[in-house]
Simulated assay, not measured.
Amino acid sequence: MVQGAGGMQMQPAGWLKGVERLCRKHDIFLIADEVAVGFGRTGTMFACEQEKVRPDFLCLAKGLTGGYLPVAATLTTERVYRGFLGDTSEFRTFFHGHSYGGNALGCAVALENLKLFRRERILSKLPAKIRQFTRELAPIKKLPHVGEVRQKGLMAGIELVASKRPWKPYPLSKKMGILTSADLRERGILVRPLGSTMILMPPLSITPEELAFLCRETLQAIRRRTEL
């Protein structure tokens, strides 16, 4: 649904469900990479829920611990699990493992983070924040050097362009994303650029005031940098 490292590219509604149908038709395992979009980032606990997709593998990280410690997990189905069961003589054991797999401290942090989701009712608070995020991004879309704003839940990509009509991207040598991010850093905001695309991924715990500040300062930084 979201191609994050590709510049926050959004797939159209129904695309993921269509991929699932093709996988089922041809008996191909479907792997959902929810490292970036899982744990509420797109508005639901997992992004694939929005199209009622049930992947064979679900890859998780980042939001599992709220970013405090590096922990990742891969979930799979009973069918895949049973594929590695058998007599010792069959040598079907899944021998792959990581030196730091099952780290006790990381797992403890992940469990506490999941408790916070329930106790603070994080998911139920997201719709209002997502609606505000959409409203706050609207003025940014109107800037003359913003070609496109792509948003899904609490994640957005703001693509900076030299010209909208005709469409003309900034050459990478101009470092527009890097320089705009540097301006924001001076205002206490950390934003990751992907080329000339600014990536906004505010924490799920962000307050309405902080969200307004983030978008307002982003607008001003883009305006200052592109109007030089």
Rank of each mutant, 00 (worst) to 15 (best):
1 M>S: 01
4 G>C: 09
5 A>N: 11
14 G>N: 05
14 G>C: 10
15 W>V: 07
24 R>D: 06
27 D>V: 00
28 I>D: 14
29 F>L: 13
32 A>Y: 01
32 A>P: 08
37 V>R: 02
38 G>D: 03
40 G>Q: 05
41 R>Y: 04
44 T>Q: 11
46 F>P: 02
46 F>D: 02
48 C>K: 02
48 C>W: 02
53 V>C: 07
58 L>W: 03
58 L>V: 09
59 C>D: 11
62 K>T: 05
64 L>T: 04
68 Y>Q: 15
69 L>G: 03
75 L>K: 06
76 T>Q: 01
78 E>T: 08
80 V>L: 08
83 G>V: 12
90 E>I: 10
90 E>S: 15
90 E>T: 14
90 E>G: 07
91 F>A: 13
92 R>D: 03
94 F>G: 05
96 H>T: 05
96 H>Q: 06
98 H>R: 13
98 H>F: 15
104 A>R: 15
104 A>M: 14
107 C>S: 11
111 L>H: 07
113 N>L: 06
117 F>P: 03
118 R>F: 12
121 R>Q: 08
121 R>V: 03
123 L>V: 14
127 P>T: 06
127 P>V: 12
129 K>W: 06
130 I>L: 07
131 R>V: 12
131 R>E: 15
140 I>D: 03
144 P>D: 08
149 V>C: 09
154 L>C: 05
156 A>K: 00
158 I>D: 01
161 V>L: 08
161 V>I: 11
161 V>G: 06
162 A>H: 10
166 P>W: 04
170 Y>Q: 01
170 Y>D: 04
171 P>A: 13
173 S>N: 09
179 L>C: 10
180 T>G: 07
181 S>R: 11
183 D>Q: 12
183 D>H: 15
183 D>M: 14
185 R>F: 15
185 R>Q: 14
195 G>E: 06
195 G>I: 03
198 M>E: 03
199 I>M: 15
200 L>E: 01
203 P>K: 07
204 L>K: 01
205 S>Q: 10
209 E>Q: 11
209 E>W: 00
209 E>F: 04
210 E>Y: 00
215 C>T: 07
218 T>G: 08
219 L>K: 04
222 I>V: 14
225 R>M: 06
226 T>V: 11
228 L>V: 14
